[in-house]
């Protein structure tokens, strides 16, 4: 399977969208190579503002741009936007429902050995707790592009979390992403794996391994964390014997939390959350850290089998 950088692909898309939406203004927090906002800067220098290392001001400025009818796209790392500027995002963007798009890279533990300060394992929980804020976590370059298109067509604040890691291609141009809708990647009524972000690839691989053992496992990719596709979760709770959620995030408050909130109200099935078990990370590459956290194909498959016993 080919691997791509969703940051680079998304940045390329943003340049294309820049032609369609004259109102797009990209704001950067001094990370233009890492976020790849440099691509937009090169294409539209007059619609690009490098705000420097002053993220709170950057989000406030974005609110002002949106008030005056622009579509600000704020770029930085997930950790800084969700935590350093949390209050600006909540009070000056989400509360007045301003049309600001946060397109943040380095979600989860993808910054690897850069360390815990640069990891974002809390951002999904934080951003999804803010009313009016849509939270989108794509899993590969194609899905990231489609998420970006959908976010720009949507009126209101959106948080898009990208990974720093290269990702395997799962989606093709034939697939269609809609805000509020999950995508069904594998059919099956024995168990269900629900993934978000880059975990989609391990989820699919785990389901394929399980199938070889005769366990038909449904795979749902939940790129739209908020609004959440309640229907598809309720259906999985009714039709399958076990649900396993997989995310590059703390097991508290993210995808696992969101799925459990739905299942707790509908009942019918046990849910196992796979993710970071509420602690800060050790030193290592993203792959090393995922292995240590048992966020792997083998661990997912083992959990599914364990729950079906």
């Amino acid at each position: 399977m080919a691997k791509k950088s969703m940051r680079h692909e998304c940045a390329k898309s943003l340049v294309e969208l820049g032609a369609k939406y004259n109102e797009i203004i990209v704001l950067e927090g001094d990370l233009k190579e890492s976020t790849q906002s440099i691509q937009f800067q090169q294409a539209y220098p007059e619609r690009y503002i490098d705000c420097g290392i002053a993220e709170q001001n950057m989000v406030g400025v974005a609110a002002g741009l949106a008030l005056a009818g622009k579509i600000p796209v704020v770029q930085s790392f997930a950790c800084f936007i969700s935590m350093r500027t949390c209050e600006q995002a909540r009070t000056s963007v989400a509360y007045p429902r301003l049309n600001v798009k946060f397109v943040v890279s380095h979600g989860g533990i993808s910054p690897g050995s850069a360390g815990t300060t640069h990891h974002a394992i809390e951002d999904i929980a934080i951003m999804r707790a803010i009313p009016n804020m849509a939270v989108l976590v794509p899993g590969d370059a194609e899905e990231a592009k489609q998420v970006l298109h959908a976010a720009l067509a949507y009126e209101g604040p959106v948080y898009i979390r990208l990974s720093a890691s290269d990702t395997k291609d799962i989606y093709t141009e034939r697939d269609v992403f809609n805000i509020g809708r999950a995508t069904l990647l594998r059919e099956g009524n024995d168990a269900c794996i629900i993934t978000t972000g880059t975990m989609v690839a391990v989820g699919v691989e785990a389901a394929d391994q399980l199938l070889q053992k005769g366990v038909k496992t449904r795979v749902i990719q939940m790129a739209s964390i908020k609004p959440l596709d309640h229907g598809i979760i309720e259906q999985a709770a009714k039709e399958t014997e076990a649900i396993v959620t997989v995310e590059e995030h703390n097991i508290l408050g993210g995808l696992g939390g969101a799925v459990c909130e739905v299942v707790a109200e509908t009942g019918g099935v046990r849910v196992k959350r796979i993710g970071i078990k509420d602690h800060f990370s050790d030193v290592g590459t993203a792959t090393c850290l995922l292995n240590k956290e048992e966020i792997t194909v083998q661990a997912i498959a083992k959990n599914v089998l364990g729950m079906l016993k």
Binding site: G60, A63, L67, A68
Partner: peptide
């Protein structure tokens, strides 16, 4: 104040230290 409730309120404010950035954004568009 909530900008969506009363005409003439340009921006919802209340948490201190936000307004000057928002004003700078508006001025930037100007």
């Amino acid at each position: 104040p909530d900008m969506h409730k009363i005409a003439g309120v340009e921006m919802s404010t209340g948490s201190l230290g936000h307004g000057l950035s928002v004003g700078a954004g508006l001025a930037m568009v100007g």
